[in-house]
Write a protein that binds this DNA or RNA. Sequence first.
DNA 1: AGCAATATCTACATGATTGTCAATAGCGAC
DNA 2: GTCGCTATTGACAATCATGTAGATATTGCT
Lengths: 213, 213
Amino acid sequence: MPGKTNHKGAPPPRRRRTALEARTAILDAAERRLVESGPAAIRLQEVAKDVGVSHPTVLHHFGSREGLVEAVVHRALDSVQAELLEAVRSSRDSPNEAEVLLESVFDALARRGHARAFLWLVLSGYASDVEALRVRAVAEAVHEARRQRRAGKKRMPPFEDTYFTVLLPALALLSLSIAGGLMGVGDDESAPLGPRRFRAWLGRLIHEHLEHG
Amino acid sequence: MPGKTNHKGAPPPRRRRTALEARTAILDAAERRLVESGPAAIRLQEVAKDVGVSHPTVLHHFGSREGLVEAVVHRALDSVQAELLEAVRSSRDSPNEAEVLLESVFDALARRGHARAFLWLVLSGYASDVEALRVRAVAEAVHEARRQRRAGKKRMPPFEDTYFTVLLPALALLSLSIAGGLMGVGDDESAPLGPRRFRAWLGRLIHEHLEHG
DNA sequence: AGCAATATCTACATGATTGTCAATAGCGAC
DNA sequence: GTCGCTATTGACAATCATGTAGATATTGCT
């Protein structure tokens, strides 16, 4: 092997990051594996290789594998929750509330594989105590808006109806983000029976139901 | 240790099952672990211990760990598909089609943790080519029934509407069986805002939409 | 430049997991 | 009863994953 006779020659140069940079890079790599293969598939050596460090470096920053997994789980759940809250907030007071909310929630779930990560964590038992999806709180806000819009008109439906009307798209979008392809809704956003058409249809259904239920 | 001085004494008696019995018992144990913790968590030693055999016995019957996993995955997917088809078939021609279909599909998904197993397999990439949920076929049958029921009355909605109307509860039920608790719908079937109420509500919504959409 | 702090590395230890092999023993057939 | 088939087993090998220890290099500070 001419040219690279490193048989005990100079050790490779080291890149020294700040602790924060290193932690962030490691968390990013671990999160990619979380989204792709779940928390149980997070391996120290593979994460280390992704980042370009040796695996004891990962242990140095997170103490143990469990420490790393907890950190990445915590960060992912916080991220999902924050994006969902932002999605709900940003679509409030918009004219076609339901459609916009649906699109922004779907965006939040699809972006960076958040829906996959969330379902991995639910199945793996990591999200048992999390309140990532405050469906109840959203439903209460929607119910109040609905009541005001109906002031004096037809009789108001019970809270149950509003609650389930909010819950339904939440459940549907979650499944859609990971199992849509298996149920005939491809990944092609612009397909005739594709996910975009479905979301639009669902938005109309919800809107219609909330208005003239 | 008085009474059990088995320090190289008689080896424990062996129970010899037929190959089919052994395979079935092993697959049952492996499937329990699949439902609980996913395909990646199937360990030869643990499955063997559950059945009460040594792990080389498992290897003898399935060749390799991959062989075992493939066998249990195959059996689980076949089972889900069969139960879903049966659910669809049994609810056909019933007066309140939508509600009955919803209940039977939910039963099929909840029973023995089929929904969990299915989602594990989808996330793990094992169900990529499976057509477990023939939503399209069901939708076509429903569409035809809808057309006949509407003969000569109002104008017929497009197929897209029927298709999405079938797809929606499928997606919702899937999520509901694993994430219901996290979204406020507890596991208590008889709770005021519980899963039974939700399914009933969803059944009415679907029925209403299909009849007077 | 010199120094302290610490991010990083190599090498090793340890346990878990899959897989191999030869020997054993249960069960049906004759 | 005994004989053959094979389900079953204990012992071992090989690999992988996590974790430890000590040495080293890089960076910021004075």
